[in-house]
Design a protein around this nucleic acid. Structure first.
Length: 348
RNA sequence: GGCGCUUUAGCUCAGUCGGUAGAGCAGUAGAUUGAAAAUCUACGUGUCCCCAGUUCGAUUCUGGGAGGCGCCA
């Protein structure tokens, strides 16, 4: 395994932050808040009013799987082509992605779009992915599934708190930041420690990160945060779920299961909100009746709302330049001065 | 109408051999460095259905009443 990324990191850090994209607009916000609608409107008005062609880039962690569409609120194929979306349908349904790899993809896409004289507009609600694109992740050793399997087997036998204890002997500072039950991060921390090059002290790698607002940006960015009143958002979520079922969400899941069997449920895409629940419901009853469907919808709405809360917690720490209230829907946009000056700066 | 079961947190239910009660889910808040729509953490006072009785003390026992479910008529 190569650690060139790690050494490159040291070098870059000592010379200051490297720009990863020239200039980009980001549209962030919780699910169903209207990010996508706002981005589309932005596209239109930038084109017609400001003569500024742009192109959309997806930063949603679940929209890049082919054939996994309805439940992840993917734009239609027509929208994908007319807005020049990048980063959608770039993986097979069973594929997997990670934040660092995706950040590279987005940076590349933004560079290409800029090189073609357009403005990249990145849309998405995944906190970690946004963070890695906007601020970057330290180039730590990469994901290693063989190691992970080993850790999981140990955890099965001894429990995660025991692995946490193990981490404590290897990287006490990092261990102190993690709860003994936090399996995802304990696993990742051990994975990093085990792959460090000879002579690199774990404690030198695990440095506490600054708050998001203070972290340097990897390009010139303008962040629009979209949100709306709770009751409006709740209603939108409910009606969006209804619409998803109406447009054949169940058959989409059935097809995926037919094609990939149990593999799909275990895949990353299969863990998206709603997919898990539908898979479970279909396992109980191949043709759910009306009461079962409405129970399923309610369950999915609950999970979606919980997700909204997590997104807001994350977004609250992220810097933003313009807060857009979508409570009354999204009509014609009045561009704020800060946005216009951001664009001017781009021309200069 | 008779018999049986049941009534406890927003919901589903434990439990207290009599000393006023706790799980799951929901809710709220927080965390988040390559699975992130993932994962993890913290937060639990409610006329224990009502009335009366026994008792130092009843959500718990006894009697009556009311609601729910089931069976028999």
């Amino acid at each position: 395994m190569s650690h060139s990324g790690f050494h490159a990191f040291k070098k870059v850090r000592s010379m200051g932050v490297e720009q990863k994209f020239a200039q980009a607009v980001f549209v962030i916000g919780p699910t169903a808040s209207g990010k996508t609608a706002l981005a589309h409107q932005l596209f239109e008005q930038l084109q017609s009013e400001l003569k500024k062609p742009c192109q959309l880039v997806n930063i949603d962690a679940f929209q890049f799987y082919r054939s996994v569409s309805i439940g992840v609120a993917k734009p239609t194929s027509q929208e994908i082509s007319s807005y020049g979306y990048r980063g959608i349908d770039i993986l097979e349904p069973l594929g997997s992605m990670d934040a660092a790899r995706y950040a590279e993809f987005v940076w590349g896409a933004c560079r290409e779009i800029s090189d073609n004289g357009r403005l990249p507009v990145c849309v998405g609600g995944s906190g970690l992915y946004l963070r890695s694109v906007l601020h970057g992740l330290d180039p730590l050793p990469e994901r290693n599934d063989a190691l992970r399997q080993m850790f999981r087997a140990s955890a099965q036998a001894w429990g995660w708190p025991a692995l946490h204890g193990w981490l404590k002997t290897l990287a006490p500072l990092r261990a102190a930041q993690l709860h003994p039950n936090d399996k995802t991060r304990i696993e990742r921390a051990l994975e990093i420690v085990f792959q460090l090059p000879e002579g690199v002290a774990p404690e030198s790698v695990f440095q506490s990160t600054q708050t998001l607002a203070k972290q340097e940006l990897l390009g010139s960015s303008y962040v629009i945060r979209v949100d709306c009143d709770d009751d409006v958002l709740r209603r939108r979520i409910a009606s969006r779920i209804d619409a998803m079922f109406a447009s054949g969400w169940l058959s989409e899941v059935k097809n995926l299961q037919q094609q990939f069997g149990a593999e799909f449920a275990l895949s990353q895409a299969g863990k998206a909100i709603g997919y898990r629940e539908i898979i479970a419901a279909l396992a109980e009853n191949e043709a759910p009746d009306a009461p079962q469907i409405s129970e399923l919808k309610a369950r999915i709405a609950t999970l979606t709302w919980q997700y909204v809360r997590r997104q807001r917690t994350w977004n609250a720490k992220e810097r933003f330049d313009w807060e857009f209230d979508s409570t009354d829907g999204i009509a014609k946009i009045q561009f704020p001065a800060s946005f216009l000056s951001f664009l001017d700066h781009y021309h200069a």
